[in-house]
Design a protein around this nucleic acid. Structure first.
Length: 556
RNA sequence: GCGCCCUUAGCUCAACUGGAUAGAGCAUCAGACUUCGGAUCUGAGGGUUGGGGGUUCGACUCCCUCAGGGCGCACCA
């Protein structure tokens, strides 16, 4: 439709003898009275034509030739907007389209099966996932769903490191708790992991191995067992949120395969790495970064940049054409080095999209809680899911833009979980399901009844009642027809919160419609048409829910 | 000190990336179908979009500046 109008307006402009045509944009006006699509072209051109914008608009409209079965009114408004009002017939056709496409309605081919990787969560297995991790987890998974929906070939990946200093401390923390369980007096250092889960792991070890581990070093079974147990828990937590990674990529494998050293020697070869003070430096300053960075410490250990560069290079080598990294705001400063490194190695850094989400501030008893896995003052994701529910958690994280620092008050979340916005959407879906059940109980088969050759609008009777009827129905239909546009905008901007808002509006339109009009009545044609409208609404809701990863309940 | 993000209704957040009258939810107050689910619907109050400049037909949106908050600025990840 947009394309069609673009062509029409363009034709009008050429028939006016205008050759220099600026970018023609159409958008959906915020205010419903302003039509279904609007263009500001007249205002954009007014200056260079030295004519009042409204007059330019008038000239354009005068030369427009448009199919009157699609557009029934064109008006000039405001300081020169040209507003197009679509026919009701057009929207009825859209509804037919929705029902025909069913669960595929809204699917788009933006990606053309482009091989894409979404890397997210990537928390090291030193403790349970916290509410803070939740945002990145849900966001990353939803981006993956959006891309799948728009025909990208998506791999979900979790990158982790089980070899660093933190993991050694983890192992030693478990060892000490284990010894404590054996009755030994221990001195538990402050920088060790304070969480109760460490004691649980120690207990499991004791139950399984008794006293036999007394003299084992921290790096051995203590670390390995802890890692395994914690990782299992992380996976379980993610699964509760409907999240499943395809690949778990171990940083350590990059060392074992020599990929890390490879990066250093190649950088050296290109004159982009040099030795100083016993360390190896990356000459980032020659690539537009403020100063050079250490990639290998004088101890011989690499800094995080080096394996990160090697890892991303492997992503390229594995054939990914688009790589999405979902990171928390604490990593903003780190990725430019990695991108510069990739660039230096001859890879196109624009294939890597880094999506930064701001932190979740946890508020408890009116105070901001500083989350720290090591200090064990955190609220786990599991606790949150226990308290509210997975759908609520997902929706909560998705309803806001990732650029905003959002406040999370656990107490409030519990209190408000009954009134949570996600139920507003799901209720609409359940309500439709219920209407369908009701219709079926009266012997109406929605499959048959959904004959779309029937008019979806009652022919206006005399008086205002008929007009009211058409308003809610048309508003709902217009809303539904907009779904593919919303999907596209979310997928291209990586902003799923717009979908959440849109679905909220769809549910709102439906509730309003439902409240004013009866679906199942004695009027067979009207019943058929309204059931079709219900089914269309249900389709859009269900498709949207599946992108957001929340359930579409038939009853609540 | 420097960089990124943020500041919008009492609270939590939107605003289709520069468009027309800045919108939702929660909270508060007042109302609503004898039949399809009241987890719903209707209405009211609530705003100098942190302050000040600028850019233009037009600014919550872009630029400058000031104030406040978050996150970074390692031979930690």
């Amino acid at each position: 439709m947009k394309q069609y109008l673009q062509d029409c307006v363009k034709a009008s402009l050429t028939s006016l003898g205008l050759t220099q045509i600026p970018v023609l944009t159409f958008e959906k006006p915020r205010i419903t009275g302003h039509g279904d699509l609007t263009t500001n072209i007249a205002m954009v051109m007014a200056k260079s034509l030295r004519m009042p914008a409204r007059q330019v608009a008038q000239n354009i409209v005068d030369h427009l030739e448009i199919d009157s079965t699609l557009v029934d009114r064109i008006e000039i408004a405001g300081s020169g907007f040209i507003n197009f009002h679509f026919t009701d017939e057009f929207y009825r056709k859209q509804l037919t389209e929705i029902l025909q496409q069913g669960r595929d309605f809204g699917r788009l081919n933006l990606g053309n099966r482009k091989k894409t990787q979404v890397e997210f969560v990537s928390a090291n297995p030193t403790g349970p996932l916290t509410v803070g991790h939740g945002r990145g987890a849900v966001y990353g998974d939803t981006i993956a769903r959006l891309l799948e929906w728009t025909n990208y070939d998506v791999t979900r990946e979790y990158y982790f490191n089980n070899a660093g200093r933190q993991m050694r401390i983890l192992g030693d923390s478990v060892r000490l708790r284990y010894l404590e369980l054996l009755g030994e007096k221990i001195d538990f250092p402050q920088e060790h992991y304070q969480g109760e889960y460490i004691k649980d792991i120690a207990l499991h070890l004791k139950e399984r191995y008794g006293h036999t581990l007394r003299d084992n070093p921290p790096e051995g079974i203590f670390k390995e067992y802890a890692e395994q147990e914690i990782f299992d828990d992380i996976k379980k937590t993610l699964l509760r949120l409907n999240i499943k990674h395809d690949v778990y990529y171990n940083e350590n494998s990059l060392y074992e395969s020599g990929k890390v050293n490879e990066v250093i020697s190649e950088l050296r070869k290109k004159g982009l790495a040099y030795d100083q003070d016993g360390a190896v430096w990356f000459k980032a300053s020659s690539l537009g970064i403020e100063k050079d960075k250490v990639i290998m410490k004088s101890t011989g250990e690499p800094t995080y940049r080096l394996p990160d560069i090697a890892y991303h290079r492997e992503k390229f080598r594995r054939g990914f054409e688009l790589m999405i990294d979902v990171l928390g705001a604490d990593h903003v400063a780190t990725y430019p080095d990695v991108l510069a490194g990739l660039n230096a190695l001859g890879y196109d850094p624009s294939c890597v999209k880094v999506l930064i989400h701001q932190f979740v501030t946890i508020v408890q008893d009116g105070e901001v809680v500083k989350m720290s896995t090591r200090k064990a003052n955190f609220i786990t994701l599991d606790e949150l899911i226990d308290e509210v529910d997975a759908d609520v958690v997902r929706y909560f994280f998705l309803m806001r833009s990732i650029g905003s620092h959002l406040n999370f008050d656990l107490k409030l979340a519990k209190e408000q979980s009954e009134a949570n916005p996600v139920y507003y959407l799901q209720y609409a879906h359940a309500r439709i399901a219920s209407i369908i059940r009701h219709a079926e109980s009266l012997g109406i088969n929605p499959q048959v009844v959904g004959d779309l050759s029937l008019p979806v609008r009652r022919i206006p009777q005399s008086g205002t009642e008929g007009k009211l009827v058409e308003r809610e129905e048309l508003e709902l239909m217009k809303m539904l027809a907009n779904f593919p546009d919303v999907v596209e905008s979310c997928a291209t901007t990586y902003e799923p919160h717009r979908l959440a808002e849109y679905l909220h509006d769809v549910a709102g339109c439906f509730h309003k419609f439902y409240h004013v009009h009866r679906v199942v009545t004695d009027d067979q044609q009207l019943t058929a048409a309204r059931i079709a409208l219900c089914l269309g609404t249900k389709t859009v809701l269900a498709n949207g829910f599946s992108i957001l990863g929340i359930s579409a309940p038939m009853k609540m």
